[in-house]
Design a protein around this nucleic acid. Sequence first.
RNA 1: GGGCAAGUGGUGGAAUGGCAUACACGAAGGACUUAAAAUCCUUUGGCCGUAAGGUCGUGAGGGUUCGACUCCCUCCUUGCCCACCA
Length: 845
Amino acid sequence: MHGMQGVRGSIPLSSTILRRYSMAVAYNFNEIDKKWQEFWEKEGIFRAVPDKDKSKYYLLEMFPYPSGKIHMGHVRNYSIGDVIARYKKMCGFNVLHPMGFDAFGQPAENAAIKNQSDPKIWTNQCIDWMKEELKKMGFSYDWQRELSTCDPDYYKWNQWIFLKMMEKGLVYKKKSLVNWCPKCETTLANEEVINGGCWRCKEIVEQKELEQWFIKITEYKEKLLDDLKELKNWPTQVLTMQENWIGKSQGCEIYFKVKDSSEIINVFTTRPDTIFGATYVVLACEHPLVKKLIKNAPEEKEILEFIAKVEKESKIVRQASDVKKEGKFIGAYAINPVNNEAVPIWIADYVLMEYGTGAIMAVPTHDQRDFLFAKEHNLPMRIVIRNPNDQIQNPKNMIQAYEGGGVQVNSGQFDGIPNQEAKTKIAEWIQNNSMGKITTHWRLRDWLISRQRYWGTPIPIINCKKCGTVPVAYDNLPVVLPENVKFTGTGGSPLNQAKDFVNVDCPKCKQAATRETDTMATFFDSSWYFLRFCSPNYINDPFDKEEAKYWMTVDQYIGGIEHAVLHLLYSRFFTKFFQDLGMVSFAEPFNRLLTQGMVLKEGEVMSKSRGNIVDPDGIIKQYGADVLRVFILFAAPPEMELDWSDKGMEGIVRFLNRVWRLIDEQRSLDRARDESVQPSETGQIHELTRKLHLTIKEVTSAFEKDYKFNTAISATMELVNQIYQIPEVQRKNKTVKDAVEKLVLLLSPFASHVCEEMWQMLGHSKSIFLETWPEFDEAKIKTSTVNIAVQINGKLRANIDVPADASETEVREIALSDLKVKECIKDAQLKKFIFVPNKLVNIVI
RNA sequence: GGGCAAGUGGUGGAAUGGCAUACACGAAGGACUUAAAAUCCUUUGGCCGUAAGGUCGUGAGGGUUCGACUCCCUCCUUGCCCACCA
């Protein structure tokens, strides 16, 4: 799933390693990291076992694509998850925190072509490397639950789910276009099409029609939309993006008769209020009527050439903004049903067959794309909605389309009506007079899962000349990928060459038949892995219903914002499907969602092609895992973009060194500490208690509320600074020792290794993660007086001390008697007195 | 083209209607040291002023409010996603 920020290869050394002077970490992090990683593993501290007596907490981070190297995006994602998992454990929850690998996909196959290797061996090697790095970060995973989607024990269930979907009528085959390189004879991903050419050989990419497998996700469109309301703990931006993606819109189909013909063009529009301004009609090149209408027309040959050209262009090129919209008049006219006007029929590359009905009515005055097209081809225009802010009467004077609101003009009986109102009225009038019908349009398309690739789950289908498409029997799953396949990069899917795989007997008629060679898109694999983690070795079903009942739903899911639509939508769809199968009792898989921002360097995304990758492994070698974890959480709030800086990390080294010295000091004080001779509580010590409770409150609220770990960490820094303000003799005080102990507890989710070590140094024998999270006391935070601001006409003029929770009358008296305030007011009239308890007052004069 | 975000000191960021710049980095000066590192102390938004203090200031412009980084409108810039990368 992750994989954007670079794969194994020539990774430049971090500049940090090359810098001559760098801050030294005060403790032996190599030894400490290793010691505690082994301890956690050996003691099984983070192993998850169902326990009915304990509340469960399922924390999941999006699993990675095994590129071989972890990148800063992974470090960020998994550090955020890890601190939450450790915190929840300390709060007494039974935590499930698993990790696995989204192991199918194109990079393995591309590597196979390049090195003549086996994608399986390559992938497993990458998984080993990556696991090693993840372990070095000290993340609290239950490795016993590790899974890999390229394992037949996993992808067997992809096939099982596919067949179940087929049983429920959710699977079908349809012709669909793919990017095709005629030289390599292979399908290409959008990202492999570079400036319209093949990434490998630069040949111009064509569009080719292939029979492909689709999943009817559209059957679930209403539920997918409605249930978004239930997702109260999802970021609103993700909800909005999903809502737009599903794209429910009320619109209208309008029937245009073709002049001197019995044919009818059905156009779809969301703007029926502009129908009187429709001055031409545009069909997609693939529209079935086009070939009929141009038959025997004088321009037929020219038009066919144009269509052939457009069909070769990739979808990306067709929708790109910088390309000039091209089109051709096809010599026929259509009748606008509302005013019986004959308007020309055009074809153009910017109208897509997949959207709406593949035909549009063009209103150049009120749609910018139509406007540009009409200007380019000198087509007529008519204003039908009056822009209240300008007086343009003649459409020739318009410099762009007016897409805003206003009253109807040139619209027959609807003139003078606001267009929002006219939208419904016109649609109803059209429907009542059989000129069209009101429809609901959805933007969501069915999901194309076919890939003409080797390294994916084989689609469990046998194609028989006699019986058609025959599903593989459940008992015969998994359909295992054949080995010893040649990877040439040409000639279609490598599976076609695997004769033993392809040639089989039809399960129905036992005659010779062929196996389907398309594999599944990897999004299929990742749409249900969160359920598999509940029982990763279960053999009777994709997952054990009882285990899933205990662990699901995922309490906190964390991953990149780039998955806001696709992965998250597919996972929601699968869950609803499992609900309909009676396998789960809930409709939504992820209770709370956190989408973390990208990791940048100097304002640019870290990527191999930019050559600005900072390798986490180098940072771990130089500073240890804790420094990296704390820094990446400190540098920015989780959902924001994070600008990497090598320098900033030295601040964290300094900070952890300061904490280490405090603990070291307390340890030596412990030896000499005399309980009976406690230094007396000074004001500073009293203040420290208050600060401690404030800090506990702040850090706890970061975990419970907004995950602002950057400010949580800065709060612990302030606490440390305050402890250092206390003279060394006073630090013998038990209150200081208590504060230091609590500090270590507060920091342990972040700097886990060194905190375990420090906890031991402070004389504890049990793992810090088996301790209880500290609680704060609101009474200890309260003070007797507060300092509040005095504003005069909104400008800060003075600060005054008032008793905490003082009344307005009291504060007013103190404020008005303040010398500075008096001087500012002089003899001006007091108009208003604004009072915000414990914060400020504003005197308006 | 569509959708979603973000814009605050030299830098990362803090403050979500109430004292703008917490915390950290960097920089400058000082203490310690034979020296360096480490550590500790001081200063650090702009402008005016010796100072007290004043004044401007959160991408630009407008609006709402006693009060706006925060809410509303218009615009600019940057980043991310858009169905075969994952």
